[in-house]
Structures are given as C-alpha cells and as structure tokens.
C-alpha cells in the first residue's frame, strides 16, 4: 500500500461521523492502508486539544453474519497487551452503541513514517542515526518477541519517527493488523501476509512453522534500505525476491541451513550454487561492526539468525 500524504478529509459514513464528532475535531487523513486495515487519520480531542491518530476497523460485508471477525479481534487484543516506548500506543478503543459495527481505535500521534523520510531529498544520515534507529527498533522488537508476538509486516511504512534537533526523538513500530501471538500447541501459520520485499526466506520458501526471526530479517532489510536509499530486494512476487536474496547472500546449503535442501528440492537446481557477495563492497559506507550485525540479521537460516535481544548486545549497538 502506498502512503499518500495530505489526503484531505477522511471518508466517513454518517454513523462513523456520529460516533466521533462529539469528542473529536479537525480530521485529516494521514495513511491509507486500504479497506482491510482501515485508514488512519489525525484528529484533535476537543476537551484537551490533544492530537491523536484514529483508525476505524470495519467488519467486511461478507463477514457480517459471523460476529466480530478474527482479524479485528486479533489486531485489537494484541494491541491491548502492548505497552512499550517503541510501540505506537493504543490509547483507547471507543465505546460505541451496540448498533455501531465499526471498531474505533485511538492511538498516540507521531509525525511521519520512515518510508516518507527515505523519500525526502535529505534522508536520514544513516552513519549518524543508524545506531539509535536500530537500538530503538530492536528494543520494540525484543519486547514483542519475549511476549511471543510476531509482527509479520515490518516495512518502512510501519515505522514511525519523530525528530528533534536532527536526532531521532521517538521511534514507534505500528500496524499490528497481521501480528500473531505464538502459543503452544503450535499450528501451521499463514505465509501470505506482508510485503514480499521484506519477507524472510523461510516464508518465501513456504515454511509454516516460522518464528520471531522473520521480523529480524525484515528489520535487516529496512536497515539496509536506509543505507542504500532503495529497497534491498526489489520485486513483485516471492520467486523474484527469493532470486534476489540468493544473488546477494548465496543459495542456502545443508551446512549453513540444515534441512533446507530436503525440504525445498528446487534449491539443488542451482548448480553450481550461487556464492554470496561481499557485503562490505555492497555497503561501503557501513563500518565493520555494522556490517557484521547486518549479516547476522540477514542470515538465511532462521535458527542461526540473531535475535532482537542478542542484537541489542552486539558491539555495533553498544553505547
């Protein structure tokens, strides 16, 4: 979904209007995420003048006979368990009349997404801000992961930032629309959500028993994108992205990813196997410690990929 800035006044049905206008004013659309995830708009609380972000989740027409759909239930109940400085805070779920079928979420308001920053003519100075960026982003991820929650849709659009004196003053992960709480007994998970460019190889290869490592991969892609100023892997579908990944990092082998060849026989078709490129040549601006961390975040084998907690202890991020 493309982020469109200054979209004007959000489209609201008369019912939605009736729910929110008594307490809120000055509506301005800030993020358009399509009908499934709801648009996000900025508005002001009339009583305190506080600026907040609001998202309205609507029950799809074809699911109306089946109560509150899983997607909304899962989305809101995960948000309710989260309370961390690096995760966009859900202030409240508006109480509505029982005849109103939409769910109104009120969040704290943060200026803009990383995606928008990367598109400006003066993007983030990653040499200076890469460390504080990763530290905050990984703190948020570590918090999620110890609670056994996988975000599953990390991308520059879902990382909100605000700056003060050219320093990152706030970094917040957002959009938990497809997040998943892992609780044993484990059942196969869906592999269809998220933007393919930031998808981990195990997802692209169709493994359904993936874990929190998929978020680390996405964060590695995002960090690389901040340096390159373009997505690390570009393509419209899984196979294209997978090829891009193998071209940069080499094809996985039984040595570096035990079991991969038996589960994905087509990997043997890469004969001879593709050799990994030298990351230092790809990212000449990045210091050696940074390269090491990046390579651990972009480790093909999910079980050997660095965890958020370990990454925070990495020499690159040590204060």
């Amino acid at each position: 979904m493309e982020e469109i800035v200054h979209l004007g006044i959000p489209f609201l049905t008369p019912d939605q209007w009736d729910v929110i206008t008594p307490a809120y004013k000055d509506f301005e659309l800030i993020r358009s995420e399509g009908p499934r995830f709801g648009d996000m708009f900025k508005c002001k609380l009339k009583s305190t003048k506080e600026v907040v972000a609001m998202k309205i989740l609507t029950i799809p027409e074809d699911q109306k006979s089946n109560g509150i759909p899983y997607s909304i239930l899962n989305h809101v109940s995960i948000l309710k368990t989260l309370n961390h400085p690096n995760i966009l805070k859900l202030h409240t779920v508006l109480r509505t009349d029982l005849d109103v079928e939409d769910v109104f979420l009120v969040f704290e308001y943060i200026d803009v997404s990383l995606k928008k920053f990367l598109a400006t003519p003066f993007p983030i100075d990653v040499i200076k801000l890469g460390k504080p960026f990763l530290r905050q982003a990984l703190s948020g991820l570590a918090y999620l992961h110890v609670q056994k929650i996988i975000h599953r849709n990390l991308k520059p659009n879902n990382i909100l930032l605000s700056f003060q004196n050219h320093e990152i003053s706030k970094l917040k992960l957002t959009d938990f629309g497809v997040a998943k709480s892992i609780e044993p007994p484990l059942s196969p998970y869906s592999i269809n959500m998220g933007n393919p460019c930031y998808k981990a190889p195990e997802l692209l290869l169709g493994f359904t028993n993936y874990s929190t490592a998929v978020d680390i991969w996405s964060m590695g892609c995002i960090f690389a994108e901040m340096i390159k100023l373009q997505p690390l892997f570009i393509g419209n579908d899984g196979p294209k992205i997978l090829t891009e990944i193998f071209c940069l990092l080499g094809t996985p082998t039984e040595e570096n990813w035990p079991g991969v060849a038996s589960l994905c026989s087509f990997i043997q078709a890469f004969d001879p196997p593709i050799k990994p490129k030298d990351l230092a040549a790809e990212f000449p601006k990045l210091e050696p410690d940074g390269l090491d961390l990046l390579s651990r975040m972009l480790c093909l084998c999910p079980n050997s990929r660095i965890s958020a907690v370990e990454a925070l202890e990495h020499p690159y991020l040590r204060p």
């Binding site: 109306k64 006979s65 089946n66 109560g67 509150i68 239930l73 809101v76 109940s77 995960i78 948000l79 309710k80 368990t81 779920v93 109480r95 029982l98 079928e101 709480s181």
Partner: peptide
C-alpha cells in the same frame, strides 16, 4: 440470531476492555 450474538460479542469485548490474549 447472528446479529444478537454479534452484539453480545461486542458487549463482552468492551466489558473485558478487549483484553482477549
């Protein structure tokens, strides 16, 4: 009816403050 169940679901959700995890 489905509609009645949905309303009850909403009442349960708001009473439990959506803490379903």
């Amino acid at each position: 009816e489905a509609k009645t169940i949905q309303r009850m679901e909403l009442l349960v959700l708001s009473t439990l403050k959506w803490r379903m995890q």
